[in-house]
Simulated scan of single mutants.
Amino acid sequence: MNKPIRKAVFPVAGLGTRFLPATKAMPKEMLTVVDRPVIQHVVDEARAAGIEHLVFVTGRNKVVIEDHFDNQFELERTLQERGKTKELEALLRDLPGPGQTSFTRQQNPLGLGHAVWCAREILGNEPFALLLPDMLHHAPVPCLRGMIEAYNETGGNIVGVYQVPQDQTHQYGIVDVEDPSAKVSPIRAMVEKPPRGTAPSDLAISGRYILQPEIFDILAKQEHGAGGEIQLTDAMITLAKTQEFSAYRFDGDIYDCGSKIGFLAANVAYALAREDLAGDFRAALSKLLDR
């Protein structure tokens, strides 16, 4: 029987330089898509998939993320005194329970693989989910929920993928699978940012993973790769020599909130999906576009 996926890792140590000056004093993960921080949307996805423990790999100037997932007694008391019951209930509903969050530091910016390795003592000897906060997955069925369902059937390691234009494959980690049309298919090869024209497929890694704990032993010895960083994809390629990897194809919409266009598009898409906002927002957009 496969060990259950109880814990999820969120690497949130990045500087967010592409959003300066907005991120000079505020973490990029706290930028809002409509009225929820980007990191809250990703945590929502994890909790909807049944994740019990949230592990944040942070860096300097990220304390506000820890505060966001804690009680704000003054705010809660003020809302209660002013009769704002709906707002108070929403805050408490989003709040993880006692002991359900952990925070650890990545002191040096040595890449995604290093960030995952920094969480090893908290994760222990059990499989875990990894969600990149920059990548918002928008669909009726949360991406991680579908991946965990697939994991419960196949075991091993699962990598979320999505289709990208062929002329953009050099910008992503790309996987080659046995059946490109299948929802879940064994992975035959993985390559990080292949040179133009050499990608084995058009299926890019989407920023969602389920990984076995043996990845930590590999990351501990992993040589620095592209950009002088410890690359997670390199470690996964090594692990794939001894363990099964499968791709889970996500067919919803993905917004890269690490880019300005992706972030703006996410705000539009999430606003249009809200019953309380869609009508008025659509009218406002139409007015702007008609100028």
Rank of each mutant, 00 (worst) to 15 (best):
P96I: 06
Q222K: 11
C143H: 13
R82I: 04
T32V: 11
D251W: 07
Q171N: 13
L136F: 08
M30V: 00
A226V: 13
S286K: 12
P21I: 06
R60I: 03
H138S: 11
G262W: 03
G83H: 11
T169P: 08
M26A: 00
D290W: 03
T198V: 08
H224Q: 14
S246W: 03
A271R: 13
V34P: 00
A25F: 09
V191K: 06
H41S: 02
L15M: 06
Y255Q: 04
T104Y: 04
S259M: 08
I65K: 09
V184N: 06
Y209D: 05
P21C: 04
G59D: 10
R249A: 08
K84Q: 15
G258C: 07
T238E: 15
P165K: 01
T58I: 09
S286E: 15
P194K: 05
K183S: 14
L110T: 12
M190G: 08
V38H: 01
P186Q: 06
L285S: 06
Q168H: 15
S181Q: 12
D217K: 12
I230F: 11
G279F: 01
H137R: 05
A204H: 02
N61A: 15
A49H: 00
F10K: 09
V161T: 13
G225L: 00
Q106H: 10
L54V: 05
D276N: 10
Q80V: 02
H170D: 13
V9D: 06
N71I: 14
D253N: 05
R145C: 05
Q72F: 14
F263S: 04
L219E: 04
R47L: 13
A129P: 07
G14W: 10
R77D: 15
G262H: 04
T104M: 10
N2M: 12
Q80G: 15
L211T: 02
V9R: 03
E87G: 07
F263T: 07
A204N: 09
R208T: 13
D256G: 02
G83E: 11
P11Q: 02
T85W: 10
P195N: 04
V164C: 07
F250R: 06
V43R: 05
V12C: 15
V55G: 04
N157P: 07
T58E: 14
V57C: 13
K287F: 03
A283F: 05
V268K: 10
G99N: 11
G197Y: 09
L219M: 05
L91N: 11
V191H: 03
G97V: 09
G227F: 12
E45F: 00
A150D: 02
S185C: 03
V161M: 06
Y248S: 05
R6C: 04
R105C: 14
A269F: 02
P213H: 10
M190Q: 07
A271G: 01
N2R: 14
P37W: 00
T58D: 10
T154R: 11
I65L: 10
Q163L: 12
M236G: 12
L289M: 13
G59V: 04
I187Y: 07
L79H: 10
H114F: 14
Q231G: 00
P195L: 00
E74D: 15
Q166G: 14
G97H: 09
R249Q: 13
A90C: 11
W117E: 13
L54F: 00
Q40S: 10
D94R: 15
T23F: 01
I210E: 09
M135S: 03
I261T: 14
D276G: 06
T238F: 12
D176F: 03
A182S: 11
R47Q: 12
I174L: 10
G173C: 13
H138I: 13
L131R: 05
